[in-house]
């Protein structure tokens, strides 16, 4: 059983960079909601400066539901870490955004604290908030 899992994981790792549209194939295996993965690639959904995902346009009901689920998971994680480190959950979200915004892939949408949605293009430098390091 374990061997099967390892070989499947290896296959995904090998296949992902080689294929043009790997997200739709890999996403269910990773337990990731497909609609979100597709929307991220299409730039309809993106990372916000506060550590949550947001919509660039008007999302479908299903997309809204899946993104809300992700944000709810994140919120719980932020609260847990905040309690462990004795800081606010808001600050944990901001610290998380610093990392997520520095790991964008080409085509992804992101929102900085000015509220403007931008698309990440290759070689572009994302101006992270001042508190990011």
């Amino acid at each position: 059983m374990r061997e099967i899992f390892v070989s499947v994981a290896a296959a995904i790792l090998v296949a992902a960079p080689a294929m043009g549209q790997p997200t739709a194939v890999a996403a269910p295996a990773m337990g990731q909601p497909t609609a979100v993965a597709q929307a991220v690639q299409a730039g309809q959904v993106g990372e916000r400066y506060d550590g949550y995902m947001g919509f660039v346009g008007d999302p479908s009901a299903e997309l809204r539901r899946q993104v809300s689920a992700i944000n709810l998971r994140r919120r719980n994680l932020y609260i847990q870490l905040a309690e462990r480190r004795n800081v606010t959950a808001q600050l944990v979200g901001m610290a998380t955004a610093c990392q997520l915004l520095s790991q964008l892939t080409v085509g992804e949408a992101y929102q900085l604290s000015d509220g403007v949605w931008r698309r990440y293009s290759s070689g572009q430098k994302v101006t992270l908030p001042g508190y990011c390091r």
Binding site: A16, P17, P22, T23, A26, A27, M30, G31, Q32, V36, A37, V40, Q41, I70, R73, R74, L77, L100, Q103, L104, T105, E108
Partner: peptide
Amino acid sequence: QAFPPAPTR
């Protein structure tokens, strides 16, 4: 599940 991983990221 909360932070969609590779290949998106």
